[in-house]
Design a protein around this nucleic acid. Structure first.
Lengths: 250, 250
DNA sequence: TCAAAAGTGTTAATAGTACACCCATGA
DNA sequence: TCATGGGTGTACTATTAACACTTTTGA
């Protein structure tokens, strides 16, 4: 066989699908859009679309993210250039089962985006309906109507959630769910929402403030959570946490 | 825009490329094949090929692996069904820069395979030349002739090596580099080769034998490494190590 | 008898856990 | 004044790192 014969190859469509996660009201939420056409018409799905002919995969994902949410994306490597409305974006995995789309052979390169809770709902470039809902709504749907994502999107979402849950253990990625300036308590509530556990506020405080490069104080304080004023922090330069945050068992 | 219009989409070729790693003579080695045709004719490249029209991505990767090495693949989830010549195989990442192949738009879904040192060299289904070489040969090539992989394969290899290096920290994946039965010392030399560090044999022994489910003794012993006879072990059922192996700094 | 690798014991330093306790604000 | 989170101190435990020491083989 000739492994690189350019003349004879089966044609594929390539799409990007997005797992967009945020933390709202103490729970981890994902963005879903309602499908306007067959197949799976009327069902909820992950946002996504075709990769264009001249476009890199990361570019396509960033474009789709911007179209759906108004968020600009920044690469994992570089710190947020636009802290106001930037989101973390990284490639997740690729899904290529021959039967995953009933119409044709589609390979989808899924991406994972993590965003702070958006003050503006969704900047709808398109007029289609979209919503944030707790990930359990889609992963353990009680009702086909409100849950049960189209295609293999439930699997993609599950993989994205798992990636987020494990990656905040050993990286500073949890700050991607926070506004540009945030308190230690707000960061702790992100961990609690993503992991679905309760953490000791005292030990958490010592841990994150004691990890060099994780948080840098801005000098300001806030009382937006009530109680004693809390120091405000920005995300520091460190991306890898050593030692990691420990996710409680059970 | 219509995100799922099946009639108008740019056609892509989809390939799988393989980062196949093994440990030989105390160093981490990768499999490369020599390209017989343009572009990059005569240069070394990662093994790979087109995904067929009716084939899943994992199937395509397993097929290419078998064609190149004679190794059967087993999924990360399931324990090796054929401990004799099975390899660990998992998806790595997808590379889709529009210019990564000068001929046409090719999206490559890279996979990572980890195999024990093969007694038989390579079962060449094809007659093309192939070789194992230390990963540094390709990642820091002193000479274009012997190193310098084709396309973006140096980046793919670097990503695969990084994945392997980090994953043996918190999983039992290092056993994929070992024969079906192995000693603690052999497992330690795998860690040392992959990380490029020296580990304390005494603490390593306590650590791996004390982690439940990591290793199960077979009852046999061997003196194939010289010195006092060492117990033989098989890989246990555990896939996640908690607490993880710690990679020394620097 | 010696070298080489396997394996055990011990100890000091480090890091995590569980809580008692105080602080600064708004209502 | 009280409730609410923010933040510090401290004792206890678990894990790691360093290394002395014994065991069992082949040469």
């Amino acid at each position: 066989m000739s492994p690189y014969d350019p003349s004879a190859f089966p044609p594929f469509a390539v799409t990007v699908d997005l797992v967009v996660l945020t933390v709202r009201r103490h729970s981890l939420c994902a963005l879903a859009v309602r499908r306007g056409e067959a197949p799976f018409q009327g069902r909820w799905a992950l946002p996504g679309g075709f990769v264009r002919a001249d476009e890199d995969l990361a570019m396509a994902a960033a474009r789709e993210l911007e179209e759906e949410t108004g968020l600009s994306a920044h690469d994992p490597g570089t710190p947020a250039p636009d802290p106001g409305n930037g989101a973390h974006l990284e490639q997740l995995a690729t899904y290529g089962d021959p039967k995953r789309d009933p119409r044709m052979r589609v390979v989808s390169v899924a991406h994972l985006a993590l965003a702070p809770d958006l003050p503006a709902p969704k900047a709808g470039g398109d007029a289609h309906s979209a919503r944030w809902a707790p990930v359990e709504t889609f992963l353990e749907p009680e009702d086909e109507e409100t849950g049960a994502l189209a295609f293999d999107h439930a699997q993609i979402l599950a993989d994205g959630v798992e990636r987020a849950r494990s990656k905040i253990e050993y990286s500073s990625l949890a700050t991607a769910f926070c506004p540009p300036e945030f308190t230690v308590g707000e960061l702790r509530r992100v961990y609690e929402a993503v992991w679905g556990v309760a953490l000791d506020p005292r030990n958490f405080h010592r841990k994150v403030t004691g990890t060099p490069g994780f948080l840098v104080p801005t000098g300001g304080t806030t009382t937006r959570q009530g109680g004693r004023p809390a120091q405000l922090f920005r995300a520091g330069g460190a991306t890898l946490l050593n030692p990691p945050m420990l996710r409680p068992e059970v």
